[in-house]
Amino acid sequence: MVTGAPILMNMSQPHMSTERDILTLAQWLSPAFPVGAFAYSHGLETAIQSGAIASAGDLQDWLADVLTHGSGRNDCILLRAAYACDSNAALEDINQTALAVSASGERILETQLQGSAFSQTTAVIWGTDKAALCYPVAIGCAAAYMQLDVDLTVALCLHAFASNLVSAAVRAVPLGQTEGQAVLAALIPLCDQIARETRDAALDDLSSSAFLSDIAALQHETLQPRTFRS
């Protein structure tokens, strides 16, 4: 539940340059930022163990579907909604919606724990709201408070999501580092496209038809042995 002081509107901070926007977002979305992203595979580990993902090509196809038809696109919409939010009540609705569109118990924990860790860290360093929020919602709120460019935030957040899953696959398939980076590079135009396509999207546009990814996330809850938390 969202508690505490009313949400600070993004006009409460002076405008920042694009260069500073990029550097701030680079820090927030870096693997070094303490949200524990390395511990989650978003169901990818299940697909790897089943043999559905056994090559760089398999990985690229899988991630493209997740970004376009699943969690990637939904996270963009949720982030934008949180960025434009003007009250705690509206923010609570957005956060509950983020939980509702999570396809499994592990995905709920994934977004809650990362979001909580993100909010706690940004609150200490940048003075943002430390309310426990789902990860894309927390990023959207913090970006609005800091007056970071929302389109840039969405694109870089989507790229960071893809990057984390590529890193998980490099460890679990296994793939070579160069193969992994080639997959990530190939997904850059798609990240940009999805970021642009969600500019006018609202919560009513949330959906998911990445069924294999959702099923993999559900099956991961009983997967043994396993390395990742989701």
Score class of each variant (00 low, 15 high):
E19Q: 11
Q147D: 12
A195C: 12
L156W: 11
L23M: 08
N164P: 03
M16K: 14
E92L: 10
D214A: 13
S41L: 05
L190K: 12
V66L: 13
V2P: 06
A100N: 15
K130V: 00
D21R: 02
S17T: 15
V166A: 01
A39K: 12
S50I: 01
C191F: 11
A52N: 04
F161T: 01
A123I: 05
T46Q: 11
W62C: 01
T97Y: 08
V170L: 07
G70C: 04
A54Q: 08
G72V: 02
D93Q: 15
H42V: 04
E179M: 03
A217K: 02
W126M: 11
Q60F: 01
H159G: 09
F161K: 12
M1H: 10
E221C: 05
L44S: 03
Q120W: 06
M9I: 12
G51T: 02
T122H: 01
T153E: 06
I7C: 10
V124I: 09
I194M: 13
E106H: 13
G36I: 02
D129R: 03
Q114W: 07
L206Y: 06
Y40C: 06
L8K: 15
P225S: 13
A210Y: 10
N95R: 12
A195I: 12
D58M: 01
H220C: 05
V173F: 06
I139K: 10
D61V: 03
A143Q: 05
F33K: 02
P6E: 12
G127Q: 04
Q114S: 14
D129P: 01
A144P: 00
Q177L: 11
A52P: 01
M11N: 15
T198W: 08
L59F: 00
P174C: 03
L79H: 08
A143D: 08
A168F: 03
E179S: 09
L187F: 06
T46N: 06
I139W: 01
C85N: 09
G105L: 13
A143M: 05
G57T: 08
L152G: 06
D65M: 05
S87N: 09
C76I: 00
F118V: 04
Y145M: 04
T18C: 09
W62K: 05
A123M: 02
V35L: 06
L113K: 14
C76D: 10
A123T: 10
L67C: 04
F118C: 04
P6Y: 07
A132P: 00
S230W: 02
I188F: 08
Q224C: 11
A186T: 08
P14D: 10
L79A: 13
D151M: 08
Q219H: 06
A26T: 04
V150N: 04
